[in-house]
């Protein structure tokens, strides 16, 4: 309930303040198990992808985000888990004991849709960095779940890392055909990288430096 009200406001704000140009919206899965993979420029990324989903499906859509950031205080943890619907992933070092993707496995088993940002961090706005290979483990373990690449542009201009001032820009959301598991993790990651680079060349974006 709380989540629906929150995202209703997000939907209105996203439509009015930003304005989205979505290409091939019909390819976005709202029924799981499925994995949506997007590039990461801004806190708005999760908000916008969630805002594209029907309100009735929201409880089955789970953004995957860093535990050290979103669960750093009890308040943040409560908000992240109950309103945003985040699945925490521990991105910390070598001394971890259990599989950091445990929460993702459970959600996919329950037929949820995961939203994943394999760049790991928002980084420099509107610049893509190398992809972390966690997503390939998920794809290997759940070969029946389609992996849908989504390229976004403009959200990093509207609200880059380290800024609290939202400046309106129209944003582009390009959704790609789903990828299926072919049996090789390295090949999978290369293909994903290739898909992103094709999507990012679909339009000439205005320079921003």
């Amino acid at each position: 309930m709380l989540q629906k009200i929150f995202y209703l406001f997000v939907k209105i704000a996203v439509l009015f303040l930003l304005g989205l140009n979505v290409r091939r919206k019909e390819l976005l899965p709202s029924d799981g198990p499925a994995i949506v993979v997007a590039n990461h420029n801004s806190h708005l990324d999760t908000m916008v992808l969630m805002a594209l989903m029907p309100l009735s499906k929201l409880k089955d859509i789970k953004p995957v985000a860093a535990a050290d950031y979103f669960f750093s205080s009890p308040w943040k943890a409560w908000f992240s888990e109950n309103v945003l619907g985040i699945i925490p992933v521990d991105r910390g070092g070598a001394n971890r004991t259990n599989d950091p993707l445990e929460g993702c496995y459970r959600a996919l088993n329950e037929g949820k849709v995961l939203i994943l940002f394999p760049e790991g961090s928002r980084g420099e706005p509107e610049q893509m960095t190398g992809l972390k290979k966690g997503v390939s483990y998920l794809a290997e373990k759940f070969p029946e779940a389609p992996v849908v690449p989504v390229f976004t542009h403009g959200l990093g201009k509207a609200l880059p890392k380290g800024s609290f001032l939202l400046v309106p820009f129209f944003c582009d959301i390009f959704i790609d055909e789903p990828m299926t598991w072919e049996g090789n993790r390295i090949q999978f990651m290369n293909l994903l990288q290739e898909r992103f680079s094709v999507l990012s060349r679909e339009k000439n974006f205005a320079p921003w430096e």
């Binding site: 880059p160 205005a206 921003w208």
Partner: peptide, 24 residues
């Protein structure tokens, strides 16, 4: 909407985010 469209299609500078905000 027109100004947002204009700002979205022209080259802008990250340093001018605040200036764009004033323009809005």
């Amino acid at each position: 909407l027109a100004l947002k469209e204009y700002f979205s299609m022209i080259p802008t500078r990250r340093a001018d985010r605040r200036v764009l905000f004033w323009a809005y």
